[in-house]
């Protein structure tokens, strides 16, 4: 079972992100479980969102306590004790413009200023679709072309053409920056 926790603020689209990823992985014939932690519904409130992906049936129904991947969509929510819930050699993605050093040396750390790109293209701090470019980069079983196509199609069920285009432009820009910063082309 592969387990991911998102830390974000209300309005950043983390819930939509896990639901979209859930649908995409479900189409890849995986068992999935995607759910947010419900609290006060207001923009800016810290919220955790969870995604489980598994070949086997998923029985557990509580929040994730041992993560393969942790994502912080807002760097002000990050503190090193929060990654106590990250497995050894786990993946950590932080949406930030700052340089962050970790005491833990086993963690695979990825830093990217997704918000800056989102603000430029969408004019709002909605980094969720930009972030998606990390998934085909980090997970070998994902075919990037199909992933992007599925993502675009799922978005167009809900949003106008203009919004979908802007989000996909953010995705492309982050994809480019991942290639530049972390070497591997997707």
């Amino acid at each position: 079972m592969y387990e991911i926790t998102f830390h974000s603020r209300g309005g950043q689209g983390a819930k939509s992100a896990v639901m979209l990823l859930g649908k995409i992985f479900s189409q890849l014939d995986k068992n999935i479980q995607a759910f947010p932690e419900y609290g006060p519904e207001r923009e800016g409130a810290p919220v955790r969102t969870f995604l489980r992906i598994s070949e086997e049936e998923i029985n557990i129904k509580s929040s994730i306590e041992s993560n393969d991947m942790m994502i912080f969509l807002d760097d002000s929510l990050f503190s090193e004790e929060k990654i106590d819930l990250l497995k050894e050699n786990g993946i950590l993605i932080i949406n930030t413009g700052s340089e962050i050093q970790l005491k833990r040396k086993d963690v695979k750390l990825y830093l990217m200023d997704i918000t800056k790109v989102a603000l430029k293209i969408i004019n709002r701090n909605v980094p969720n679709i930009g972030l998606m470019a990390f998934f085909p980069f980090l997970m070998n079983e994902i075919n990037e072309q199909k992933f992007k196509k599925d993502l675009e199609e799922l978005l167009s069920h809900k949003y106008s053409k203009e919004i979908v285009e802007k989000n996909m432009k953010t995705y492309d820009e982050i994809k480019k920056q991942i290639g530049e910063k972390y070497g591997k082309k997707i």
Binding site: I32, F35, I58
Partner: peptide, 10 residues
């Protein structure tokens, strides 16, 4: 409520 109603599963 929420645990099942708002959690997406295959």
């Amino acid at each position: 409520g929420f645990i099942t109603s708002h959690a997406m599963e295959s």
